[in-house]
Design a protein around this nucleic acid. Sequence first.
DNA 1: AAGTGGTCTAGACCACTTA
DNA 2: AAGTGGTCTAGACCACTTA
Lengths: 243, 243
Amino acid sequence: MNTAKTLDAKSPIPLYYQLKEILLAKIEEGEWKNGTLIPTENELIQHYQVSRTTVREAVNSLVAEGKLEKKQGRGTMVRKPKIEPVLGRLMGFTERISMLGFEPGARLIEARVVQSSETIKEKLQGEADVYFVKRVRLADDEPISIEETYWPLKIGKLYEGEDLNEIAFYPVLEKLGYKLSHAEEVISSVVASKEQAQQLNIKSGMPLLRIHRTTYTAAGEAIQYCCNYYRSDRYSYKVHLER
Amino acid sequence: MNTAKTLDAKSPIPLYYQLKEILLAKIEEGEWKNGTLIPTENELIQHYQVSRTTVREAVNSLVAEGKLEKKQGRGTMVRKPKIEPVLGRLMGFTERISMLGFEPGARLIEARVVQSSETIKEKLQGEADVYFVKRVRLADDEPISIEETYWPLKIGKLYEGEDLNEIAFYPVLEKLGYKLSHAEEVISSVVASKEQAQQLNIKSGMPLLRIHRTTYTAAGEAIQYCCNYYRSDRYSYKVHLER
DNA sequence: AAGTGGTCTAGACCACTTA
DNA sequence: AAGTGGTCTAGACCACTTA
């Protein structure tokens, strides 16, 4: 039990920070399980031989990070992993649909190099030619959306040889070391064309949610532009707003 | 200068919190300008006759909220207002449209007490009757959306006597001390009914962006449920996602 | 060198939860 | 009644910034 690391008072690293790291390790390594109470302030004071202020500083910063939760009179608890803050998180179709509890799928319509339109050029910061992939996306084998993606050629190359009826784009990129950072989306409403209706197995004239997305790497480079058309009867878009 | 409020040691409100509110007021009322240094910890200790711990607790919580910024050896500064994080911010139509550079407006269609449907009951946490307001919203005198809002009766009462062809809801609530906290939205796509098309001055069958919003107060109470139908040719919804 | 915030101690009384 | 975290005091030494 008392394998506990001790704090180094001579270190330039503040005591509260050393303690915080120790507590964090116990949480992440599962020594302290979700929902259980951690030792009380007095126990931590005794154990690590520091003042209450120091203990509180360590614990409070973990509370601020959402790792711990304090209740006056009761104790300090390891926080159950929050219900994934799903909203506002950049995800691909595969990831999103899996998370919603469906089996993701794809049906390739076409994949080829095309000339950039003006829009594409603007979004992808001037690429003359781009790699275009068009797929119907499925959830539990039912068509949910039409996905039209445009990639800079150097990215497109990475997908050659991959089975476009199968792959999810983002995991491939991340495995190759690309760091996705954020995306901007513009959402609007359109009615299904005859072709779209057929591909989505709905009647033409039905409303579709159209989502344009531009995705950026951590370096600030636009790495993807896509246009997705979602069946509005099977998919809705959720947003969380803060005042 | 020394019109400063003093702290009430006998109040059940903690000293650090009283102090925090005082500091916050000085920032928001502009007594302390953006980018200037606020009094030092020692000055605050002297002035308010509290311990350093208490001062630090007040200041640190404002630092956590982004209102202040500390620099060791230099002092504590009022933080310049961030480049408005417009996306993801809960705003009413009036605020949003103004920000986009248009003149907001409204045309009242109806306002009355109605029985709650099952949906409304669920969203507004069980209210039996609700105050319903339906308006067409305008930007530069052009119809942009149809706004159907449902309010708990006690909130609805606040709008009686107000000119519903004029008012923006949120500012009224906030002036009355209601603290809006956040909202959840569900976005989908629909086609305009004949009536909607007429109200929005478009053809029926045109696509509309439908946005359901449930708004919550800081107390966690659902204070508004609304359903907005936006012309998709004049309005699009922007979202920022983080990986 | 003087002044700032950063870290830390030892102690006190309190409100709240649980047994 | 005992134990928890919440608030608060008075004091100390430190690293960093500025003059």
